[in-house]
């Protein structure tokens, strides 16, 4: 493990009993903390104040909270107008609807206008679970990253979601943060440093690594467990937490590819346009590596418990291990 990062010690000693917390809670606390310091911050909700956890801010600062009703398109543009008047608006909804339904409004009225609106897309990925495929946003990274000026962030746990929200509030450009539903393992601690644009190695076995894993979001936990178990088999895997998807940390990604020559990407998102694509685009002209892509393979999601879905879509620890093993033997 990387000691400088103050990761959760249980990750390496007792990983099956690690604490769980909702990343939405991390976002909600982060927004409140940002709002305490900066009165320009306002929050908008499209009839989802509780399930997005924007209610933590709304309860404290009702005069800076705007209830839009179920109107995500207008929400994006209303936020643009507020930003033009000097506000720093956070718009909150499910990722399927924002940036899903309101993509053109985000493109034209936020990014083309170049105003600092922060887009919080919750219930991203298949962890959304029982609600089924309609509500599982697995295309949102692709939608957000093609927009000039947009920063795209994907936290690995609640602590990172909180740090990320606080830092996103301080930038002058549009930011998209994708957040899954439900409790996920706490990979980091409150002491773990976070900086937009920097990717950190979260798991590093002794000596040179054979394989590099580049992972974003809640699957960082599964990736670290897979790497740890493979270490015991003699396959040495480094795990890079790509919490900033755009702008990508070119140096960190290239260094890992140069060192290992073999890269596996892991994401709870479509392979097309997501983390795998970003990494492949980055490496192709700089440090071409043999790659494998773990993620959703051009299909829609469906109802189920998160662990059932992770198994079915091959994002569970054993599936990650077998992909790494196959690449190791290649």
């Amino acid at each position: 493990m990387n000691n400088e990062l103050y990761l959760n010690p249980k990750l390496f000693s007792d990983s099956e009993n690690i604490e769980q917390m909702s990343m939405l809670q991390g976002f909600g606390e982060g927004l409140l903390a940002a709002g305490d310091h900066d009165k320009r911050i306002v929050a908008l909700s499209a009839d989802l104040r509780k399930s997005t956890k924007v209610d933590i801010f709304a309860n404290e600062y009702p005069e800076r909270f705007i209830e839009m009703g179920i109107a995500e398109q207008s929400m994006a543009s209303v936020a643009s107008g507020m930003a033009a008047m000097g506000k720093i608006p956070f718009i909150t909804s499910y990722a399927m609807f924002s940036p899903g339904r309101n993509w053109e409004q985000i493109r034209t009225t936020i990014c083309y206008n170049n105003v600092p609106v922060k887009i919080i897309g919750t219930h991203a990925g298949i962890l959304t679970g029982a609600d089924g495929g309609t509500h599982q946003a697995i295309e949102d990274i692709a939608l957000a990253r093609v927009l000039p000026r947009m920063t795209v962030l994907s936290p690995c746990d609640a602590n990172e979601a909180k740090s990320m929200t606080i830092q996103a509030a301080q930038t002058n450009n549009p930011v998209y943060i994708r957040i899954p539903r439900g409790d996920t393992p706490l990979v980091t601690t409150k002491e773990t440093p976070f900086e937009i644009g920097k990717a950190k190695i979260f798991f590093r076995p002794d000596g040179d690594a054979d394989i590099g894993v580049i992972v974003s979001g809640h699957l960082v936990y599964n990736a670290i467990r897979a790497a740890k178990e493979l270490d015991e088999e003699g396959i040495r895997v480094r795990v890079l937490n790509l919490s900033t998807i755009k702008p990508i940390d070119i140096d960190a990604v290239v260094a890992l590819a140069r060192q290992t020559g073999k890269i596996v990407t892991v994401e709870d998102h479509q392979i097309a346009g997501g983390v795998g694509s970003v990494v492949a685009e980055t490496l192709a002209s700089r440090a071409p590596a043999l790659m494998r892509f773990i993620g959703i393979q051009d299909v829609f999601g469906q109802s189920g418990r998160p662990e059932e879905l992770m198994l079915y879509y091959k994002m569970d620890i054993n599936s990650i291990k077998s992909v790494i093993r196959e690449l190791y033997e290649n």
Binding site: R64, Q73, S77, V78, S80, G81, A84, M85, Q105, T109
Partner: peptide
């Protein structure tokens, strides 16, 4: 120019947002 426009239908929302921000301040 107060806002970039062309794709129809989003100017009014932006005007609403500006007016709301003005009311807050």
């Amino acid at each position: 120019i107060e806002t970039s426009s062309g794709p129809l239908g989003s100017g009014l929302s932006q005007a609403v947002g500006m007016t709301l921000a003005d009311r807050i301040d």
